[in-house]
């Protein structure tokens, strides 16, 4: 049988199947449309997703408000007494916000301080590394496709896997210390000294998520018309001039999206760190989400109210960042 007759056969087969399916769907939807009218059909389509969204997102969000304004250790909202803003007051009961020990909920303010430092450092390093990597991968280098895959690969790994792998590398008797000892050097407290742990937490999270942002920036770089660089080259512009006067201004909308997205993700950081350091040493790498998780779930005295109040405060920060992202996108479109 020739190739053409094969194609025709497949077209006929799949055409028949498709026609059968469409006829069936048409019959089904047609009768529903008669019942609810043409205007009701779109709502029918979004209904399944809306139900799932309502059940797993909206309802828990509403419950979160209930928990935030109620107290006690009971699980069911009905059994929890209304306490007004007491949980929020507890979180904000502080003599000096910069000295966590002066606060009633000192762990919350430690988590806030850790998160602020982490977000600033991680986003700065992440965006810088992603930009440099994107610039390199945008050039015509050997094995470009391979390197693009290599940088993106960590994004495919589960955060828990990333955390555990790096824990095995960096723990006291881990791979890196083994190498150091093999080289005649002394063991380093990578995960048991606060400064080292903070450093590695940032580096590991940058390693794990850099590929994603590199890809966005790479797309941004590839959308810059090449004739602009050719014109600049004819005018005798140096590489730096071309970068600062062409690349950066035209890449700015993409950069803004990358910065805002990475900021949101940095504020939400949890899984990697939980598996990697567990928030230690002490509370040096305990961030906001872990504080909420600990208070709500692992603490022997379940403090759902305080955890819910803290999560609402974090949500407020995330809403501001999301609005900034939306504004940045609008700017990019126009």
């Amino acid at each position: 049988m020739s190739k053409n007759s094969h194609n025709k056969l497949f077209q006929t087969i799949f055409g028949s199947i498709a026609h059968g399916v469409i006829s069936f769907v048409d019959l089904f939807l047609g009768s529903i449309q008669k019942l609810i009218g043409i205007k009701g059909v779109p709502y029918l389509f979004v209904l399944p997703n809306l139900l799932i969204f309502g059940l797993f997102i909206l309802y828990p969000m509403l419950l979160n408000f209930v928990y935030a304004f109620t107290g006690g250790s009971a699980f069911f909202p009905d059994n929890r007494p209304y306490v007004g803003t007491r949980n929020f007051e507890r979180l904000f009961a502080c003599e000096n916000f910069l000295v966590p020990n002066s606060c009633t909920e000192d762990l919350f303010w430690r988590a806030v301080q850790n998160t602020v430092v982490y977000v600033i450092a991680q986003v700065t390093i992440l965006v810088l590394f992603a930009l440099i990597t994107a610039l390199i991968l945008n050039r015509k280098i050997k094995w470009r496709g391979f390197f693009r895959s290599v940088f993106f690969y960590p994004c495919l790994l589960s955060p828990i896997v990333v955390g555990l792998i790096w824990q095995w590398i960096l723990q006291d008797k881990g791979l890196l210390n083994g190498i150091l000892i093999g080289l005649g050097m002394s063991r380093m407290p990578f995960l048991t000294a606060a400064t080292w742990a903070r450093f590695w937490v940032i580096m590991v999270s940058v390693w794990a998520s850099m590929g994603f942002y590199t890809l966005i920036l790479l797309a941004g770089l590839q959308s810059i018309p090449s004739d602009l660089y050719e014109a600049a080259s004819i005018d005798g512009a140096s590489n730096w001039k071309a970068f600062s006067n062409i690349t950066m201004p035209l890449l700015m909308p993409t950069m803004t999206v990358v910065i805002v997205l990475s900021l949101i993700r940095a504020v939400q950081v949890f899984e990697i760190i939980f598996a990697f350091t567990g928030g230690g040493p002490g509370t040096a790498t305990m961030y906001l989400v872990q504080f909420i998780y600990n208070y709500g779930f692992t603490s022997p005295n379940k403090q759902f109210g305080v955890a819910a109040a803290a999560s609402l405060l974090m949500a407020a920060v995330l809403i501001v960042l999301t609005l900034a992202q939306m504004a940045a996108r609008r700017e990019e479109v126009y």
Binding site: L191, T192, G279, G280, T298
Partner: peptide, 11 residues
């Protein structure tokens, strides 16, 4: 005592 015993994790 190993530092990791008390300093890492919260479990």
């Amino acid at each position: 005592m190993p530092n990791e015993l008390w300093l890492t994790g919260d479990a």
